[in-house]
Design a protein around this nucleic acid. Structure first.
Length: 652
RNA sequence: GCUGCUGUAGCUCAGAGGUAGAGCACUCCCUUGGUAAGGGAGAGGUCGAGAGUUCGAUUCUCUCCAGCAGCACCA
């Protein structure tokens, strides 16, 4: 025994320390503490790192032993073990299937397979059954560290090319860890549970099958991905499935139909037919944004939809963005050549044209130029999604022409502006991603340093620590992305703020400096909502259709209980309209129950029911959406209150 | 764009190789009813489009279009 037998000191969460032989595993540590802990243990945290019970500890460390009660660690292990168990199940059922990778994700995991035959929804049941069998076997989970070449040889022999490639792409030449779930083996960093029986067999569910490119590269093989969700107990699984069901009810596509907001049809894929109700939201939001922009020191402009290719060639879009552009060729009489135009996919080149008219002075900067710019982009068919990702949309676009040393200040001003807009629209918090220099880029590192520093400094000064998105910036400059999530938690970039050194150069934008010489301005591209279409989609889902009163397309329905109240209904509607409220009458020959149900389903925020009593007393019976309680109040009071509610937040 | 799935009445969905059904919505009639569906009758469909197989296709096959989930791409 040449092994190092020195002692190490392990400190536990309660502050107590104990001495162990070096190389002790958390499993042994747990046993030394108590028999029951040893049984319940699933993993450990060693100096902040999630640690397998079988991994040795070689030096003094802070150690915490985890059980299923430790939600974060337990979820990670359960999901990760299930990924392996699922891969084993799939290979047991279809041995010709090749395995690739299977990471833990939010609420579950996925695993990508390569197999000739596509998996069918029925297969999911089969796989789940097999997985439960594996769990019931309580097969031990074991781990070993292998040399690289041994691992590569092993996978080559087994006909697992993806694993070979994976190993070859792992940098360095450190040894690799292998895990076994019973006889089934996978390359894996770990940690894992101790045996398959530790996975709760009733707290997972396979959700869906989808295609996914190997290594996320659309030039490479399309694999089959199976998604699963898993939790530490079946109640939590049930709660999650329940949440998904509830979220589906908030889907803007469903609510858009139910609230009669918009529709889309085959003849115009990715474009929206706004119905009166939906257009009401849109225009109300646009009116609000226009006021905010004015207050924010922007000048509003408007530029052409259809622009000759010459400008797109100069801007660089013809080269870099052509496949996303709608190109329109016009055969003009007597013309020698066809005129080739493109619907604008962005507004920036047009804004530079306005900037370029006349001479600009340094005194004009920063120049904040805004447009509700309608853009058309030929988005890939598979990218379209309701009104959130469309081919025709309108950005609340803006470009700030400024000096390099104004970037930070303008960014700070912008973040402040965006924050107040989001707050007014019901988003008190949002995520910010910071994307820095990509490999392929224009401009010197010196300029990039300054631009990145300026964006980061302004963001942090606003008290926001952005998520880092390394290498994801545009080729012309770094950017901030403001991200909101939809009903089922998918991320959508709404606001954006980007620095651009390139376009002013390409389109030769200049201003005259204090020194009398021409200088190049920097352009900041920014959109706050992003696009009205996407933002309205997010708004609908965020509020489950129950929009803030001032944005609600139908604010009040005044419903008669008996036809004797019809005249009074008209009077109430008129009073509300005068107070600035969108009110409509419902004097149909229907029961009040029926009317209440219909307008509740239609998400009308306020229903005022009036019958003989209200006519007599000049009152209304107020029922707010989502409340069972009603209250009878004087008409004048209700009109005043609703008039206030209907006032946009910036005008209160 | 890629992989898989889907496309039947305005909506949600049944259905079968022999040219279609339900509920809700819609229209009309009865009902005037106090806060989430009162009753009755009626009308409504080239079964996504095109081609093929078949005596016969909405049903089977192929192509296209659109939608859904995911991937890739992106506001």
């Amino acid at each position: 025994m040449a092994k190092d037998q020195h002692q190490i000191s392990l400190t536990f969460p309660d502050g107590n320390a104990r001495a162990y032989d070096a190389g002790v595993t958390p499993a042994i540590v747990a046993e030394s503490i108590s028999k029951s802990l040893s049984k319940k243990a699933i993993s450990a945290t060693v100096d902040g790192q999630h640690w397998d019970l079988q991994w040795p500890i070689d030096a003094d460390a802070q150690v915490a032993i985890h059980t299923m009660q430790d939600e974060a660690q337990a979820n990670e292990l359960v999901r990760h073990d299930l990924a392996h168990i699922m891969a084993r199940a799939v290979q047991e059922i279809w041995p010709d299937t090749k395995v690739t990778i299977g990471p833990v994700i939010e609420n579950g995991w996925y695993y990508d397979f390569d197999r000739e035959e596509p998996f069918t929804p029925d297969d999911l049941g089969l796989i789940e059954k097999k997985m439960k069998e594996i769990i019931n076997k309580r097969d031990p989970v074991t781990t070993e560290v292998w040399d690289r070449d041994v691992a590569i040889k092993y996978y080559e022999d087994r006909g697992e090319p993806y694993k070979v490639e994976l190993i070859e792409s792992i940098p360095g030449d450190e040894p690799l860890r292998m895990y076994w779930h019973g006889d089934w083996q996978d390359l894996c960093r770990g940690p894992h549970l101790q045996h398959t029986g530790q996975v709760p067999g009733d707290a997972f569910k396979l959700m869906s099958i989808a295609g996914a490119y190997w290594r996320g590269d659309s030039d490479r093989a399309m694999l089959q991905r199976i998604y699963g969700v898993a939790f530490t107990g079946k109640e939590k699984l049930r709660a999650h499935l329940n949440m998904l069901e509830e979220a589906a009810k908030r889907d803007h596509r469903k609510l858009g139909r139910e609230m009669d907001l918009f529709h889309m049809q085959e003849e115009a894929p990715g474009q929206i037919f706004w119905h009166p109700n939906g257009w009401n939201i849109y225009t109300e939001l646009q009116d609000y944004m226009r006021r905010k922009q004015r207050a924010g020191g922007y000048v509003e402009v408007n530029t052409p939809q259809l622009v000759n290719r010459k400008l797109w060639e100069e801007s660089g879009h013809w080269d870099k963005y052509q496949e996303n552009m709608f190109i329109v060729e016009v055969d003009e009489d007597h013309a020698r050549e066809k005129a080739v135009n493109a619907l604008k996919p962005m507004n920036c080149p047009c804004h530079v044209q306005i900037f370029n008219q006349g001479l600009k002075s340094y005194r004009d900067l920063p120049l904040r130029m805004a447009e509700f710019g309608s853009c058309a982009r030929y988005e890939p068919s598979g990218a379209l999604h309701g009104i959130m990702r469309v081919r025709g949309f309108t950005q609340d676009d803006g470009h700030i022409f400024c000096r390099e040393d104004q970037i930070e200040e303008e960014t700070a001003v912008y973040i402040d502006y965006l924050t107040s807009v989001y707050k007014d629209l019901g988003f008190d918090s949002f995520r910010v991603k910071f994307s820095d220099r990509p490999e392929q880029r224009a401009g010197s590192d010196d300029i990039w340093d300054k631009a990145e520093d300026a964006l980061l400094a302004a963001t942090r000064a606003a008290g926001i620590e952005p998520e880092m998105n390394p290498g994801e910036g545009a080729f012309y400059g770094p950017k901030l992305e403001f991200v909101l999530t939809d009903a089922i938690g998918r991320d959508w970039q709404c606001g954006t703020h980007q620095v651009d050194f390139v376009l002013p150069e390409r389109l030769d934008a200049t201003y005259i400096g204090a020194d009398g010489a021409k200088h190049r301005p920097v352009m900041l591209h920014r959109a706050c909502l992003g696009s009205f279409e996407r933002f309205i989609g997010i708004l609908i889902e965020e509020h489950a259709g129950k929009l803030p009163f001032w944005l609600a397309p139908r604010q009040v329905v005044v419903a008669s209980i008996t036809s004797e109240a019809d005249d009074y209904v008209a009077e109430v509607v008129e009073t509300l309209r005068v107070a600035g409220v969108r009110a409509e009458a419902d004097i149909r020959n229907e029961k009040i129950n029926y009317k209440v149900r219909e307008h509740s389903v239609g998400k009308v925020p306020v229903i005022l029911a009036v019958g003989a009593r209200e006519v007599e007393e000049k009152t209304v019976s107020v029922r707010r959406l989502g409340e069972k309680q009603t209250s009878v109040q004087p008409l004048a009071d209700v009109a005043a209150q609703l008039g206030t509610d209907a006032t946009p937040p910036d005008q209160r």
